[in-house]
């Protein structure tokens, strides 16, 4: 997974071609850290079919709020610079995979 921040978000996510999945997390968010290893597995499984990024929302607060993310964990799906889908709170990895399959 590519680690993005406020400097690289535009190029890596908004200007990217095809589907981009962004895992918004923070070091203090235990549920995020619970979910992340499973997200990494999904990212590996679908490598090449979508781009997989993670963003530390605590360190990039303004950027996250501009993306209307004010709660963690959140997984956003982007295409052509727009957020086309989002999962937030109580996310199970099965939901993530199902959403990803639907969008690919």
């Amino acid at each position: 997974m590519i680690e993005v921040d406020k400097k690289t978000f535009e190029d890596e996510v908004l200007k990217a071609e095809g589907l981009v999945m962004v895992d918004f997390w923070s070091p203090k968010c235990e549920p995020c850290k619970e979910l992340m290893p499973f997200v990494a597995e999904v990212a590996e499984k679908y490598e090449g079919k979508a781009k997989f990024c993670k963003l530390d929302a605590a360190a990039n607060k303004r950027l996250s709020i501009s993306q209307k993310v004010m709660g963690l964990p959140t997984i956003g799906f982007y295409k052509n610079g727009e957020k086309i889908a989002e999962l937030t709170k109580d996310i199970s990895i099965e939901d993530v995979e199902a959403k990803l399959k639907e969008l690919i």
């Binding site: 923070s26 203090k28 968010c29 235990e30 549920p31 995020c32 929302a57 605590a58 607060k61 996250s64 709020i65 004010m70 709660g71 963690l72 964990p73 709170k89």
Partner: peptide, 9 residues
Amino acid sequence: YCATCDADF
């Protein structure tokens, strides 16, 4: 529902 998760925002 989780202050430590979201307080930063």
